[in-house]
Design a protein around this nucleic acid. Sequence first.
DNA 1: GTTCTAGAAC
DNA 2: GTTCTAGAAC
Length: 306
Amino acid sequence: MGNCLSSTQSDSEEEESPPPATSPPPLTAPDPTPTSSRQPTRGRSLRYYTGKSRSSDVFAMKPLDALRSYATVHHPPHSLPASTLLMSTPHTLAIFDAYPKAKYHFLVLPRYPFPPRSNPESRSSIVKLDHLDSLRTLLLKTSADVREQVIGALADTAQEVEEMIRDEMIKTEGFEWGINIGFHAIPSMKHVHLHVISEDRMSDKLKTKKHYNSFRPDLGFFISLIDVQHWIEDGDDQSIRQHIESLDSAEALLDTPLMCFKCDEPEHNMPSLKKHLEKEYEKEKKTALKRIAERGRQRSSDEDMF
DNA sequence: GTTCTAGAAC
DNA sequence: GTTCTAGAAC
């Protein structure tokens, strides 16, 4: 499975070299994890190319297996195109969602082996591959220590991705808006993955009620990372099992009638919902830019006072 | 996960 | 008549 990925790798590729001194710094603040192999991304948009998807045309594979293929490559920056890979760490990958449901939409997944063989501290994976199938298997089949390590690694990378998105929002739009981080209750692709998605939900790829409802942060199908962290922090195996079992009934939530998750206004169909979301976004942008302008003035007068 | 398309909704 | 959705096929 992973072979088809490495076989596409060019023989002429060299080991990663640091960017030249004249090269601009990475997109975000200094990398907190020195082993991170995040690529220099300055000048590279976090937005998506218009047109066809990137990952599926590069690798001939079944879409449902794509994440696992990515998760098992030995050297992500060499094996995955920059249009697929946002960043990698020894424990995780962050990739562009091939069918983004918002202006910014990334997936964070644990690599396998976890930690990778290249880590001298640990020569073999502390978690079995099939225990990384889904959030369910991760929480139910691994020890408290292992699930905390995997969720913790996902959370660290998600936070980094969130910061990269925020930087890009400021750079391109002049303001920041909401970002949601969470799992789907019933995922359709194998290999546990965390969604990091901006709250605008403005995308050509957002087409159906199920698409929309699956990312509603208030519905119950989208399970926030914070909730899962609480489950594993204060829960014993029994209570975690109950949380996981409650996910089984989440499928019906996808049929919930369309309504704006920001203002609760019902919408008749997807085209009207999408227009409404655009209005919400424009309204938020206007308010935010106005507040930033005011705060700027206010802040300088505050500084005079103190 | 997506694409395609029949038939429901308007 | 056109727009839109939902389910089959992949």
